[in-house]
Amino acid sequence: MKMELIQPFINAADAVLAQNLNCQTRLGHFTMEESAYHSKGVAAVVTVVGDIEGRIIFDVEPATATRMASIMAGIERQESHELVRETICELANQVIGNAITTLNDQGFRFKVHPPQVHEGEGMKSNEDTEALVMCFDTDSGKVFMNIAMHYKRRRRGEQL
């Protein structure tokens, strides 16, 4: 996976997490994984189709999800399990949507589908393609993004 595909996700995660959580974010470790992905607890999966195809998993531990949902709702502790899920889903939507915006403005053409939320550490991706896992440190905890995408077509005017 080329850096031109990855950098927009780093920039978007940094900006969106910082604004929503009102804190600085720090980019942690990167790893390449070839085996199926196991969720940390609350995961939103977004599928992309078009010039680039694949999926992105936005994933946090349950306690981190609760802390993030509380901050974003402006309350001490978010008790609604449904709203915790919704918050992670919306964060994923914003990070991935902003990254997709940058990639589209760079000439790639593709669409995103609405995020699907999965819960529990047992959730496992069902493909064995190589994926990049990025970790962001925030004051609420770690955010993991697992990106598995490949070129279907090059940008307009470019050749494969």
Binding site: N93, Q94, V95, I96, G97, N98, I100, T101, N104, R109
Partner: peptide, 9 residues
């Protein structure tokens, strides 16, 4: 109001 704000959209 959307996170997907590329020019064409």
């Amino acid at each position: 109001v959307s996170s997907v704000g590329y020019q064409e959209n």
